[in-house]
Design a protein around this nucleic acid. Structure first.
Lengths: 202, 202, 202, 202
DNA sequence: GATGAATGAGTCTTCATTCAT
DNA sequence: AATGAATGAAGACTCATTCAT
């Protein structure tokens, strides 16, 4: 009876396992059998749902990003709070502190490396990154419209924030040179603060 | 009898080839035979100079970073120009426009992904990143001392600049969402400009 | 309630699809799923009708031959025409020009190759070949009895004609060295002509 | 020192083993590991000498035919005996009695089946068949020129003999309907006899 | 120092067969 | 009767590493 859902569920289950494995062993270190084991299925079934390993990896990357955006839907949809607060909440939600976020970051970084060598994955990355950029820029434009943020090149500001978050997070994940999740937040916060409309001096 | 130099040369030659291959196929896609072919030697000789594939990769990462710093020695040693100019020149030198710089960036990004899964490589990355961070911070501190830059948390500023450069460069390399080398430069330039000591109003 | 016919029909349908697949991909290239797809049924049902893949193949070979003889029933049953004409008609009917005949030849040749390695299939082939040989020899014996063909070793003559037809047809199917269906017919025709009772000189 | 020959020898060794395996298990039943075992080497080395299984099979087919012609070089080069004797000797040499000849026939028949489904193999077959046809026709033309054989369409006669030999040999190999190597020889002999220039009646 | 043939373990992928529904 | 998801064994192919030369 519940047959129809079996296929979709299995696909999803396998993609999530693939993300886990990518986060753990990297894209090229991913073995179909590892994914199967994690998903609790036979190796054969993976190829029943995905034509090839590459196809699975592509799907996993998209799935990782979709879930990543989904988890932040509440933040993006927040229309009541001050833009500075919303942007700060967003940055904080990307802090690599919980396992889920850390895994998502690992997969995201793997996508960078993989996409540098595969045009198909480059498209996957571009589609994801564009969606993400549009949302950030949307928040900034809205904040400027409401007078909460100073006017300015919203595209450049969005890129600045996103690039900073990406670059710092990598170092936090690697624990390099004392970089921590807290420092990422504080440096990003200072950037966001600088976007705020200066209070008019009386 | 001056054989030692032959060995050192060969090692270097093989490491450079390894960097090329890493940039092209990724760390895990690297095949010892590809490196050998690029270096114009037999696959067997690679193992004469490097105990294992991992050892070769580790050495290649370090070699990539060393050469990267060497290429910028003139900029770092510049004591005469204004800090803003020096920092700007530095950022520009990292623009992924020429083949050499692009290759170095690819290897650098590969190191991120690989280090996330290997503690030994994490150390390699940390050593490199720290040396790079010290130099940037040194420039900022010097600039502040000379009154060319506004006072402030030099460590945070250095991290901000480095994180931004890393994050934006990835997107430029991937050509995502219209990111280009020029935009990377301009966004970084705006950050550097904001560090400048405001001219006192009379 | 007349269900038995459904089963027989399905079996037949599956066997015909198996012949198609054998002609296209060869015996060992045959996949049960291909047969199922061609027959418009699920892979599972094939095993309901045939215990195993080998069993299906065996049945398909027999089915191929049965249909092959059936298609020539009119020729074999022809009692009124001259033996030379009947034999010629028979040879012509084996000309690999239409799709059906070509497919049947492919399956026949596959049977040779498969039977060389499987004793069970050797029996299948022998049964088929014997039935075919008996019919040819029957035509020759009848022709000799009616004085239309010269007397002689009917078995050897039958083998000669059959061997020649088999050997030439393979080359025609492969398009080797300029062999064509027309040349097969003409060479076979010359053999048949040589069997004719020479007209008595007055 | 004798290094140069190692490669050629290994290739040959592997091709011969491949022929054996093809004769035993068929083309599609051929496993690279079986070939390796028969050749006394590791499975990996087979791929060192042949890019893929198909490439190995193609080479094996050519090797089988080359050796087949080589074994009959003495017969083809015979310029002193009567054409009827030479042709008879040739046919006899193809009698599937010894293991070597039987293996060669198996491989040849496998080539028919395989070539029907692969255009590359079709070319391999055509090249081989053409060389073989040219030699047979050459013997017939020479015999006619020397007045040992009756004049006539040498191409058709060659095709007749070759087709007959192919077709009958298949049945002899399968032991169908009482076909034997001896009967193959006798039927072919009768065809060859019919080519002889009739002795002029005085 | 250098070569490259050889090994063999590892992994993707295919597919006959089963079985819950 | 029929489906198609699931299994798992089998096999092609890759590649780091070794070693005789």
């Amino acid at each position: 009876m519940a047959r129809p859902s079996v296929e979709a569920e299995r696909r999803d289950q396998i993609m999530r396992s693939a993300c886990k494995v990518i986060a753990t062993r990297g894209v090229l270190g991913l073995r179909v059998s590892d994914v199967a084991r994690d998903a609790g299925v036979s190796p054969g079934i993976v190829h029943y749902y995905f034509d090839s390993k590459l196809e699975l990896i592509r799907a996993a990357f998209e799935n990782n990003f979709d879930r990543s955006l989904d988890r932040r839907a509440v933040i993006f949809d927040n229309r009541s709070d001050h833009a500075v607060e919303v942007l700060t909440a967003l940055v904080d939600s990307y802090s690599p502190v919980d396992e889920e976020t850390i895994e998502a970051w690992h997969v995201w970084i793997e996508l960078w490396a993989a996409a540098l060598q595969d045009d198909e994955l480059k498209l996957v990355h571009d589609r994801a990154y564009s969606r993400w950029a549009e949302r950030i820029e949307g928040l900034i434009i809205a904040g400027q419209a409401r007078g909460e943020l100073a006017p300015g090149d919203s595209t450049a500001l969005a890129h600045h924030l996103m690039g900073l978050l990406d670059g710092l997070s990598v170092q936090a994940l690697l624990g390099s040179h004392g970089m921590t999740a807290t420092k990422v937040q504080s440096i990003c916060a200072s950037l966001i603060a600088s976007m705020r409309e200066p209070v008019e001096a009386v």
